[in-house]
Design a protein around this nucleic acid. Structure first.
Lengths: 206, 206
DNA sequence: CGCGAGTGTGTACGAACGTACACTCGCTGT
DNA sequence: ACAGCGAGTGTACGTTCGTACACACTCGCG
């Protein structure tokens, strides 16, 4: 789409595409979300980003480089959202509600983020290069939490958010847990909120 | 090793190897732990298990089947350990200490379990077939916790253990967090224990 | 207006993959 | 003793992968 002023003979405007690198990174995230890191290849990403295969090795030094950059972008984006939500909370009560909202939204929200998080964690569990990304992500999350909670609580809260986000999709039902829709049986939404609210209220700051 | 009465002409005793299936499954787990699901192939597993390549498709219906069986074994083993530890706790205080021990051991213990857990989670995040494995694992963990804690606390505790296990390796240092050895700087062991102890003590049963 | 420089592309190659399938050979029944 | 059967194996094929590299095409400059 939007092939506005493409020179007629050529495949694509050669020089007039400065954000192709960005498009490749985004396409890489989409492919990873859809097929996993295991199923991600230069060819699939190139096809999704609508760039020639040769551009892969031209812009990135191999798959690791691309994945590192893609997951850095992903972690930054999630981290930004988290930080913004925490910054918007005026007091401790609002911060607690924000934590609840984050959990509920990350849990029942898009599958994409959950899948990408797992893929990143898996990479980070093995390769130290990716651990820098997750470490930075966690540092920002914890710093954001420490605006409202004391460091120990922030540490535990961060871990709890992680754990609830990860385990929640498996508990409601074996089928796809994506959309809410299961409001009639109140188990997930009905139980998660009060429990994590209780946990968040454990110890407060100031 | 132990090539006791192998017929001289043949590669291996043909019929006298009834636990080859088991060996393949174990080898699969080792390969996954070492190279990730992405880097696991029939050939690598066959080489590690010292069985011919043809045996892969003979004993398992493709890679998915093998992975499913391997991760089922892994989850069962971890789950057994968890359950046993919980069953051995005589009262609530001992249970809390057991939870602390589980966290510390899973966190600072072998990298292998952490990597395998992540690989399983990643698979489960995308494919429902693997979700059954994680769902069963979590159900057992929670049931074990409910021997000592009320259901809501058990739910949160389970998530907290998961979250701490996952996030703890990233917080101490960018280098390998495998061996303890870092008892001199008390940061990881010194901070994780009191915080999760505090969290576990939130609400008690009976 | 022509031409070098260098950015970006198409293609081809070697390696590794999963899987099918013809075949071997140890065991068993007679 | 030996024939037959089926559990188990080796190999070969088609596909897909990452990467290297010769080449096209654009742009700026003289």
């Amino acid at each position: 789409m939007d092939a506005h002023d493409r020179p007629p003979g050529s495949r694509l405007g050669r020089r007039n595409d400065p954000d192709r690198r960005d498009r490749i990174i985004d396409a890489c995230l989409e492919v990873v979300a859809g097929s996993g890191v295991a199923g991600t290849s230069h060819r699939k990403v190139a096809a999704r980003a609508d760039v020639p295969l040769g551009a892969m090795t031209y812009y990135f030094d191999g798959m690791d480089d691309l994945l590192r950059e893609a997951f850095t972008r992903f972690a930054t984006s999630v981290s930004d959202r988290f930080e913004r939500r925490m910054a918007e909370a005026p007091d401790v009560d609002a911060a607690r509600e924000a934590v609840v909202a984050i959990i509920l939204e990350d849990v029942f929200g898009d599958d994409r983020d959950l899948v990408l998080s797992h893929e990143l964690y898996t990479l980070a569990a093995r390769e130290p290069a990716y651990r820098a990304i997750t470490a930075g992500w966690m540092a920002r999350s914890r710093a954001a939490l420490e605006r409202h909670f004391d460091p120990d609580t922030a540490r535990v809260l961060d871990a709890l958010i992680e754990g609830l986000t990860i385990t929640a999709p498996w508990t409601p039902r074996p089928a796809t847990p994506a959309r809410s829709s299961s409001r009639s049986d109140g188990s997930p939404r009905g139980s998660a909120a009060p429990t994590c609210r209780a946990a968040a209220g454990g110890r407060r700051h100031h």
